[in-house]
């Protein structure tokens, strides 16, 4: 099942990727090629196979509840695109 241009636009929106209109046909074509490659998986019989998320199947280690971080706001905000009064600035958030 091939992706249409509108599917690609929807995916790009979900991923918040601005694409030029000019790029769209080429992108759609390439994505369809890749999906064609991926779809070869569908021929594999995986009935009764448990998905594997991590190769080692280890379990999560827990951290003691201790405060180990101190305030390094100035250092972290030195590399921020826009800050004011210690806040990160973004175009107005509308709720």
């Amino acid at each position: 099942m091939a992706l249409e241009r509108s599917d690609v636009e929807k995916i790009a929106h979900l991923a918040r990727l601005g694409l030029d209109d000019a790029e769209l046909p080429r992108t759609t074509e390439t994505l369809n090629d890749i999906l064609g490659l991926i779809d070869r998986m569908q021929a594999v019989d995986t009935h009764g196979i448990e998905p594997l998320a991590h190769p080692l199947e280890a379990t999560q280690r827990l951290r003691p509840d201790e405060v180990t971080e101190s305030n390094r706001r100035d250092a972290y905000q030195a590399i921020a695109p826009a800050v004011e009064n210690g806040l990160y600035l973004v175009p107005k958030v509308i709720e």
Binding site: A82, E84, N85, L87, L89, V90, P91, K92, E95
Partner: peptide, 15 residues
């Protein structure tokens, strides 16, 4: 938290 006070038409983010 997003703070909606007006920072020159921007919102401020406190994490």
């Amino acid at each position: 938290k997003s703070l909606h006070e007006d920072f020159h038409g921007m919102s401020g983010i406190d994490l």
